[in-house]
Design a protein around this nucleic acid. Structure first.
Lengths: 255, 255
DNA sequence: CGTAGGATTGAAGCCGCTCAACCAAAGTGG
DNA sequence: CCACTTTGGTTGAGCGGCTTCAATCCTACG
């Protein structure tokens, strides 16, 4: 909802019911009457700016956050102080699920660009989920999906070469943008090469080189942050995805 | 509950209430009266033998499984047919959480040794969780913990050298054995070097070499599958864990 | 006792990292 | 408005860690 000072009634009314993300986000599969309950506990925060912190590692868990617009990265700091990116998050995705375990956020969430997020008080969500089977199921599903995603990323990090990782990363982004109504073929990378490399376990230079090579091979076109995918099948080949069952395969992001 | 043919009354009585794992498993923090309800839906299966399949990739999700004794590995088959180990599971840990998302098990669970598992029908668990706030919370916590664990493993795979990965793996196993009342200092590896390597994204030979090197350095003693940890702090050093905050750090396993 | 699978050890090669220089774009301050 | 700085990205050269390939050893088990 715009900002706290400049209230915008029209946006305020844009509750889950009318939200274009409802088929991606928490309300998926929740009945209309239950949806009203959910709306009751969700507040739409004012937009956050690039590099704004949404929550910080060590913060107590009070809310989960749903990305509405923009994009967000999450990362942990390892004991020797270096950053490890754990995910990039697009509209409709839920942040903070890893904090439920001990009630403290293990990672920091940072806006990659101007973004807006919905705040969902966790205790109220939990209580509501107890009274709303559809919501409980959806919550479990979302957490399960995250576990699945992480498993795929583990495969990528453990067993794939740099080109396969990057190809899978691009395909995954492409698919996720597509699901959100954006183009699958051209999109902006909101994260830096450095953040991509960190996420994929590669050096920045390697990311840069691979992007150049993909471009040479006519698979993509790179214009700074703007990526055009010219040959998705070619990328799938490199990513080690052999047709059909490519549902979850185009992993490499998404927490 | 023991086997379907040979009923064993004594084992039958070993419900969650009396189970030594209750502080590790699902019932943690669930009140005594709620516990009876949980017991009502859980059945104890007969022991499975080494290499027995508990569930297979592609199977529809009917039950979650709690390891009671023994150990289990889970793995996915990549499109080119090779195996990718996603976790090793010790008593008190829950299997199958990654299947909730789309109702189909994405991975296969296989007993590494003679083991016994509790079967928990998922639909009934879900229904019970809706009526039992403590249980719902615990279920969410377990899933959240798994996400956290996976995040740590991602860090390991993406940013750590082979020695750090193996050291972290050994420390993680040590801690988990310790929590279950076994010795932290000596234990059997129920998985092969090959499976460890696969899990950590390393070649078998590297695992073998690292174990030998750790032994040379006086950090551990290796007698085939039997490991004795001589210098846990030394291992922590290598794993990149600098004291204190080593709660979740000793990751590298555990799904 | 012999075989097979797992584990260890050695040698060689390659992928990706590190180091370093250079470039482009976007701020920043006078 | 321009010079300077900063940040992020690209490209090249050399190195090193891990993999691959291969041979041998060991132990469990028929």
């Amino acid at each position: 909802m715009s900002s706290t000072n400049v209230m915008n009634i029209k946006e305020l009314k844009q509750a889950c019911k009318a939200c274009s993300l409802r088929d991606l986000c928490l309300p998926l599969g929740v009945s209309v009457e239950d949806l009203s309950m959910l709306e009751g506990i969700i507040s739409r925060k004012r937009p956050v700016q690039r590099r704004d912190v949404i929550y910080q590692a060590g913060d107590p868990l009070t809310c989960l956050y749903a990305v509405r617009t923009g994009s967000v990265k999450t990362f942990v700091l390892t004991n020797d102080g270096e950053e490890q990116v754990t995910g990039f998050h697009l509209p409709g995705e839920l942040l903070g699920l890893d904090a439920i375990n001990d009630g403290v956020h293990p990672c920091t969430a940072l806006a990659l660009e101007t973004a807006s997020v919905c705040e969902i008080p966790f205790d109220r969500l939990e209580e509501l989920a107890g009274r709303t089977p559809g919501l409980q199921h959806q919550l479990l599903r979302i957490m399960s999906r995250e576990i699945q995603t992480d498993e795929h990323l583990m495969t990528l990090l453990g067993h794939r070469t740099s080109d396969a990782r990057l190809a899978a990363f691009l395909l995954n982004l492409s698919r996720r943008f597509g699901m959100r109504g954006f183009s699958r073929h051209e999109f902006n990378l909101t994260m830096s090469r450095c953040e991509i490399g960190n996420y994929l376990g590669l050096a920045v230079e390697t990311v840069s080189r691979m992007l150049s090579r993909f471009q040479e091979q006519g698979l993509i076109q790179v214009q700074r942050k703007f990526i055009t995918i010219l040959d998705a099948d070619g990328l799938r080949e490199i990513a080690g995805i052999h047709g059909h069952d490519a549902r979850h395969q185009e992993q490499a992001s998404g927490h």
